[in-house]
Computed example of a mutant assay.
Amino acid sequence: METKFIELAKQRRSIYALGKNVASSQDELVELIKASIKQGPSAFNNQTTRAIILFDDSHDKLWDIVAGSLRKVVKDDAAFAKTQAKINGFKAAYGTILYFTETKTVREFEENFPLYADNFQDWSEQSQGNAQYAVWTSLAENGLGANLQHYNPLIDDAVREAFNVPASWRLRAQMDFGSIESPADTKTYMDDDERFRVFK
């Protein structure tokens, strides 16, 4: 059997030591990210995932927003110093992808297909996972690392204002990406007997 995809999947790891030593142009990266999201499956092909791709000052601005938002809720200086160090690591990356769900489309499908109405929120989350995994793996194929963060909804309002986000777009995740400055730790796996069942 062909196992090229499995080999690519093994390359897709949470990389936290990221840098800006990226050979691909920003335009090339934008096209790669857009193509990866477009090819991801979605229920009824409703294409509910949206993305904003940030580079340079816009990338920095996003992580400044995160730091500022967390400073308001983390009152202890020592605790915030650790938080700030973590955010500085994300800021050291080359760029960030903001993932959103178009809630207007979800509502339209709930109304148009009432028999399945209770499922469209869940299905939109599955579409998010598909899109994020596709982008992450495509970046890995091109020698880039990434990790996925979830500072929403804490940062939602500030992000909406900073990047002119439509009101119907709901922020779901932030993926910073860049050159791999240090590899991920060894990945461990639970026992197959606890995870899988096969009936023949």
Results as ranks from 00 to 15, higher is better:
E2T: 06
L8A: 11
K10S: 12
K10Y: 14
Q11P: 02
R12V: 10
R12A: 02
R13E: 04
R13K: 07
I15L: 10
L18G: 08
N21S: 10
V22Y: 02
A23W: 06
A23V: 10
Q26W: 07
Q26M: 13
D27C: 05
V30T: 15
K34P: 04
K38T: 12
K38A: 15
Q39V: 15
P41H: 08
S42A: 10
A43G: 04
Q47I: 09
I53V: 08
S58Q: 08
D60N: 13
K61E: 03
V66W: 09
A67I: 00
S69K: 07
L70E: 07
K72H: 05
K75V: 14
D77W: 12
A81V: 12
A81C: 12
T83S: 09
K86M: 08
F90D: 00
Y94K: 01
L98R: 09
T101V: 13
T101P: 11
T101I: 13
E102S: 07
T103A: 04
T103V: 11
E108G: 14
E111L: 15
F113G: 01
L115D: 05
D118V: 11
Q121T: 11
Q121F: 02
D122Y: 11
W123Q: 11
W123P: 09
W123K: 11
Q126E: 06
Q126N: 06
Q126K: 12
S127E: 01
Q128W: 14
Q128R: 13
A131K: 06
Y133M: 15
A134S: 05
V135E: 03
W136R: 07
T137L: 10
L139W: 02
N142P: 13
L144G: 06
G145S: 02
N147S: 05
Q149H: 07
Q149Y: 03
H150V: 14
H150Y: 13
Y151Q: 00
L154S: 01
D156T: 12
A158S: 01
A162F: 01
V165M: 09
P166N: 05
A167G: 01
A167N: 10
S168T: 07
W169F: 09
W169Y: 08
R170G: 05
L171V: 08
A173H: 00
M175F: 08
M175R: 02
F177Y: 00
F177Q: 00
S179M: 12
I180A: 03
I180N: 03
K187D: 02
K187N: 05
T188D: 10
T188C: 09
M190G: 07
F196L: 15
F199W: 08
K200D: 00
K200Y: 01
